[in-house]
């Protein structure tokens, strides 16, 4: 077996394992943080401070029956969770966890990630459409409109970084932040990116597609067992991806106080920054009410897009001048 193929197989296994591990860490974090924000202990029963709870939950979900509702499109209904899960794994392949911890280094890794994360919309569309449930369909409508709108300010804010670095390679962007993090010169782009990221990953206060008090559970109303857990995994994997792009673009990626074996241990700083951002996402979710759908769109078109365009223009002028 050629060593390159072997490396890829090991990497693929590691990535899938990490997606599951990430979902467990985030699931635990979400439930613990929300609990403490609400002044309750949260998970306490399985394992010390409930750390094993998510494993038990996972086993429960695996053991559950996937109920296919009557009148649904059976093929699409089963396809949707897979369609949602598979593209979420792929961005991990190009993420630079440390200087030498990157499975594949591509010149266009940023574009690759953005393309992969957009596929999730199709999965939601398929899931909602195939469920034969009006609530699911509502969730789908909202999700597609939301994701399509918010991709614009997201890309515009990323573009202002690209103008500075002139590269789409993630390692290249990190290398460009040699002396300072880009959040210092592009704070507006960071804020716009983060808000769009919340909307892209359907996190509260933009959790329109799920909106449980209106749409019961939105597009995954009809899913049970592993069907549901694939959406769950995909949501957390997407959150991780969005936050790691933010880390790479604005927070200097794996850079930090140098540690021994810096080429590999940079992963510590990377993870610290990513989970810090994820904490903010969770914190935001447990603070605000949900916005209404038209307000979500208004905010995007009236505030985010003009501001990101202005930011892009100013950046372009300054890059040209300096």
């Amino acid at each position: 077996m050629p060593p390159e193929l072997l490396r890829m197989i090991i990497a693929a296994v590691l990535v899938v394992a990490f997606v599951f591990l990430n979902a467990m860490i985030l699931g635990y974090m979400e439930r613990k943080v929300s609990a403490h924000i609400q002044r309750r202990p949260g998970l306490m029963e399985v394992g010390p401070h409930g750390v094993l709870q998510l494993i038990v939950d996972g086993l429960k979900l695996i053991g559950k029956q996937l109920v296919v509702p009557e009148g649904s499109n059976k093929f699409l209904f089963r396809l949707a969770p897979v369609l949602s899960f598979a593209p979420c794994v792929l961005p991990f392949v190009v993420l630079p966890f440390a200087r030498k911890l990157q499975i594949v280094s591509m010149d266009i890794s940023l574009i690759f990630i953005l393309a992969m994360t957009s596929i999730n919309v199709i999965a939601i569309l398929v899931a909602g459409w195939a469920s034969n449930n009006k609530y699911s369909l509502f969730g789908t409508f909202r999700s597609v409109a939301q994701a399509v709108s918010y991709e614009i300010p997201m890309l515009l804010s990323i573009l202002s970084i690209i103008l500075i670095t002139s590269t789409f390679s993630l390692q290249g962007i990190i290398a460009a932040q040699k002396y300072y993090w880009f959040i210092l010169i592009q704070p507006l782009a960071f804020i716009i990116y983060f808000i769009s990221g919340l909307a892209e990953t359907n996190r509260a206060p933009f959790d329109m597609p799920e909106a449980e008090s209106e749409l019961t559970a939105g597009f995954h109303t009809e899913y049970s067992g592993m069907g549901f857990s694939f959406f769950f995994l995909a949501e957390y994997a997407n959150m991780f991806t969005v936050c790691s792009i933010a880390t790479v673009l604005f927070l200097g990626g794996w850079k930090g106080i140098p540690l021994p074996l810096g080429d590999y241990t940079g992963i510590f700083w990377f993870m610290l920054k990513v989970y810090g951002l994820l904490f903010v996402m969770i914190w935001v979710r447990w603070t605000y009410p949900r916005v209404r759908f038209d307000q979500l769109m208004t905010f995007c078109w009236k505030y985010l897009i003009p501001f990101s365009l202005a930011n892009l223009l100013i950046t372009a002028v300054l890059v040209k001048l300096i």
């Binding site: 929300s34 924000i37 609400q38 002044r39 309750r40 509260a204 206060p205 959790d207 909106a211 449980e212 008090s213 447990w286 603070t287 605000y288 009410p289 949900r290």
Partner: peptide, 9 residues
Amino acid sequence: MGAFTPILY
């Protein structure tokens, strides 16, 4: 309206 925390307070 989708805010979970106020009810606990």
